[in-house]
């Protein structure tokens, strides 16, 4: 097995709010191989974005990373000084955010915003950085990059801005690319183009990619492995084939049932998961999903389920997996 490039262990990021402690991320672990695509899926508020931002240590007060380790190569990112962390961000780990309309600084040209990272990390001169930035713009499919270099963000559409932001994120050829719902704010027609570009860029750089999404279609087409999150916790983690074909956790099964599948011959009814997700502010003991789970039983009320390995590389956090390994919620 290849040495993982990133290992996250027991990551906990909490936000101290007036209403209580929001456990946005509460004990997430996963590892990432150097060329792997990991998709993190879950509902809004399940802690996907906070997980991603925790990796880059972009969490601001009242949020804090309270526990865990984030090992990149041979360093624990949580041990680094702020200055050392700035050198990793954008250089070794690049990130793409959700809303391209507000992610570019309106008073600087897009060229400057790409060149800025190059100058910061690679010590390039103004001219060199400009040349590189133009090449990057070309590589992400911006037509006439020499002219567009000098344009301001308001001259660009959402899709084009996301291309620019991808160019900025890959400027220093990072080892890891994190994309936090990069297509959510875009038109459906543009979404496919951006995902295609992301996949292409990932292959070209031979980098690892953490893709956050709630689009299971995207997961199916891009992921090597999948991490399913619910209320800040990991509910299931495994390779994409296993997660889609043999989901074990009642929540994952619910997710799979809630998607229209074109290859479905049985004309099954589309099912939603009843109830609303738990907001993990001062969460009660027991399993966070139990209020929406058909198979909830006594231990779910009192005990937090631990991740159990049901097969090689397939982890499930559910009490149903404990002794008999019986598949839950098969009804």
């Amino acid at each position: 097995m290849v040495e993982p490039i990133l290992e996250v262990e027991g990551l906990k990021t909490h936000f101290k709010l007036r209403e209580g402690m929001l456990k946005a991320v509460d004990g997430i672990s996963f590892s990432l191989a150097p060329d792997e695509v990991l998709c993190i899926v879950g509902e809004s508020g399940s802690g996907k974005s906070v997980t991603a931002q925790s990796i880059l240590r972009l969490i601001d007060p009242p949020g804090h990373i309270v526990e865990g380790r984030i090992r990149y190569r041979d360093k624990d990112l949580l041990d680094l000084s702020d200055r050392e962390m700035e050198k990793i961000r954008g250089d070794r780990i690049g990130m793409i955010f959700q809303d391209p309309m507000t992610s570019l600084n309106p008073v600087f040209t897009i060229g400057e915003q790409i060149a800025e990272g190059l100058r910061e990390h690679l010590d390039l001169g103004k001219k060199e950085a400009q040349g590189r930035a133009i090449e990057l713009l070309r590589s992400v499919g911006i037509p006439n990059p020499e002219e567009r270099y000098r344009d301001y963000p308001h001259h660009f559409s959402g899709g084009m801005r996301q291309r620019v932001l991808i160019a900025a994120a890959i400027a220093c050829e990072p080892d890891i690319l994190i994309a936090d719902e990069p297509t959510t704010a875009l038109d459906v027609t543009i979404q496919a183009q951006i995902l295609k570009l992301l996949a292409e860029v990932q292959r070209r750089l031979n980098s690892a990619l953490i893709l956050i999404t709630h689009d299971l279609g995207v997961v199916a087409s891009m992921a090597d492995r999948v991490l399913v999150m619910y209320a800040g916790e990991m509910v299931e983690y495994g390779d994409v084939k296993t997660i889609f074909e043999q989901p074990k956790h009642p929540y994952t099964i619910g997710l799979m049932n809630s998607v229209i599948r074109l290859d479905d011959q049985h004309d099954n009814e589309l099912r939603s998961i009843p109830g609303t997700p738990l907001v993990p502010i001062n969460p009660p003991p027991g399993c966070s999903f139990r209020t929406r789970c058909d198979a909830a039983h006594a231990p779910c009320e009192t005990e937090k389920p631990q991740a159990i390995s049901v097969a090689s590389g397939h982890l499930v956090s559910c009490h149903l997996m404990r002794s008999d390994g019986r598949q839950a919620g098969s009804s």
Partner: peptide
């Protein structure tokens, strides 16, 4: 958001 993006780019 663009400030967060700038931070993610590793700008001091």
């Amino acid at each position: 958001n663009y400030v967060r993006v700038a931070r993610a780019k590793g700008i001091r």
